[in-house]
């Protein structure tokens, strides 16, 4: 649940963001403070896979946005996670 790539895709699903905005947003919704190196390592890999794309730079800060492939990847990951959550919830129900 704290995979940097998935956290970035989730953050960008609400609109384009640059590095610092991504860090703050991920911290606010997931309670995870990614390191700057980890963040940009994940950004470079997501961009390489065509899941996000850069927009025009504002000074040295460059915003990124989800691509169509990134949206599909995020939806697939969430569906897989939902299945796990549903399974765990139904299995825990008799216990609690």
């Amino acid at each position: 649940m704290n995979d940097p790539g998935l956290l970035i895709l989730t953050s960008l699903s609400s609109g384009p963001k640059h590095g610092h905005a991504l860090l703050l947003d991920i911290d606010s919704f997931a309670g995870v403070r990614l390191g700057p190196g980890t963040l940009y390592g994940a950004i470079s890999r997501l961009e390489e896979r065509g899941l996000i794309e850069p927009l025009a730079a504002d000074d040295r800060r460059r915003p990124y946005r989800l691509t169509a492939a990134g949206t599909t990847e995020l939806a697939d990951s969430l569906a897989a996670m939902r299945q796990i959550v549903d399974t765990a919830t139904s299995r825990l129900a008799p216990v609690t």
Binding site: H18, G19, H20, L23, G35, P36, G37, T38, L39, Y40, G41, A57, D59, R60, R61, R62
Partner: peptide
């Protein structure tokens, strides 16, 4: 971009270690 982000964040040892490892 990474430099701009580092300038906006407190440069703690954890941040330094993260950048070195990455």
């Amino acid at each position: 971009e990474l430099l701009a982000l580092l300038e906006a964040e407190p440069l703690t040892w954890r941040v330094r270690a993260d950048v070195v490892a990455s």
